[in-house]
């Protein structure tokens, strides 16, 4: 081997060794919990088979369930404001030339308090509280659960809902000391909403890490690996549609067929009986968050 080749090889080895291990994990269509799929996992227990879960559009909306949390005294409007801040954390990620190619809009509040997807009806991506009982046996002491529904062949996300366990957990707004901080929980859950999985087990700083002290506000700030994850999922310059509507259109109620409300148009006049799609969507116009416009890093961010 020539001296030049040896030097190049040494440099390559150094370069490889200098690369930090991948700590973010993108969720995939292969489900490790399904014994029949026999998903392969990497050394950090991140699935390596299947398509990466992702929103195909460059704009996604969410809605707050109108009750908020009466038990914890959390008003739906306040929760919406906190949710927007939590989403903005992800959209502010610095991907180099630009932010992630994703915008988030808020719709609502909505009446529906179920996590569901209507394959033949209208939908909403809902943030909802469980004040009376956490409905999942065995899942004791859960803080939150995000359910993401997707096309198993392409990885396209159709719908995502976040359930928060206000029955058992003292969830508060700006809970730096007492209680559990809503924005911190939402920042983590919205990572799942956007298609990210948990970080590597040894990661102790990321918003998507697998262990958290339960106090403080540091989940609100992205780590370098969180940033790398969201930028990998939604790289700047990605070719994507600009549709902000939920799958099959928006509805406030749980089970609305596509041809109900307004004959298939999402811009019908409001009624007294239900939240109209038009009013809510127009209200959301001022609430669209863009990663590209808000590149200023939050104070205290690690990334």
């Amino acid at each position: 081997m020539s001296r030049a080749a040896a030097a190049a090889l040494a440099a390559l080895v150094l370069l490889v060794e200098a690369q930090p291990a991948r700590a973010f994990c993108l969720a995939r269509t292969c489900d490790p919990a399904d014994p029949k799929q026999e998903c392969e996992l990497d050394s950090d227990d991140c699935p390596t088979q299947g398509k990466v879960l992702h929103w195909t559009s460059g704009c996604v909306t969410f809605a707050i369930q109108s009750d908020g949390s009466r038990k914890r005294g959390l008003d739906a409007d306040d929760v919406r404001s906190v949710s927007e801040r939590a989403f903005r954390t992800w959209l502010n990620a610095d991907c180099g030339d630009d932010g992630p190619s994703m915008m988030i809009g808020s719709l609502g509040p909505v009446v529906c308090n179920e996590s569901r997807h209507n394959p033949h009806g209208r939908n909403a991506n809902i943030v909802m509280f469980r004040d009376d009982e956490w409905p999942y046996p065995g899942s004791i002491d859960s803080y939150g659960l995000t359910t993401v529904r997707f096309n198993r062949e392409t990885g396209e996300i159709y719908d995502a809902d976040v359930e928060l366990n206000s029955a058992d957990v003292d969830i508060r707004i700006d809970a730096a000391q007492n209680g559990v901080d809503l924005e911190s929980i939402l920042a983590h859950e919205f990572g799942h909403f956007l298609g990210l999985g948990h970080a590597a087990p040894e990661d102790e700083v990321s918003t998507m890490r697998v262990s958290w002290e339960g106090q403080g506000l540091d989940l609100r700030s992205l780590s370098e690996d969180d940033t790398a994850g969201i930028c990998a999922a939604y790289p700047p310059g990605r070719r994507a549609s600009s549709s902000c509507t939920p799958h099959n259109g928006f509805a406030s109620e749980c089970n609305v067929p596509v041809d109900e409300l307004d004959g298939g148009c999402a811009l019908s006049p409001p009624t007294n009986e239900r939240h109209s799609a038009s009013g809510l969507v127009l209200a959301a116009l001022a609430s669209v968050l863009s990663g590209a416009r808000r590149r200023t890093r939050r104070p205290g961010a690690r990334s």
Binding site: A27, T29, D31, L53, C59, D98, G99, S101, M103, G105, H117, P119, H120, S139, S142, Y143, G144, L145, T146, T147, V148, R149, F150, N151, R152, E153, T154, E156, Y158, I185, H188, E189, H192, G197, H198, W212, S241, S242, S243, C244, T245, H247, N248, G249, V258, G264, C265, A266, L267, V281, L285, V288, S290, G291, A292, R293
Partner: peptide, 29 residues
Amino acid sequence: MLLDRRRFLSAVGAWTSSTLVERVAGASL
């Protein structure tokens, strides 16, 4: 990158009718 009003309303009116095979994922804290 930020949507202008026309583009946004156009996007809102866009219709997605595909009913492809779907699955569900979730995660918890």
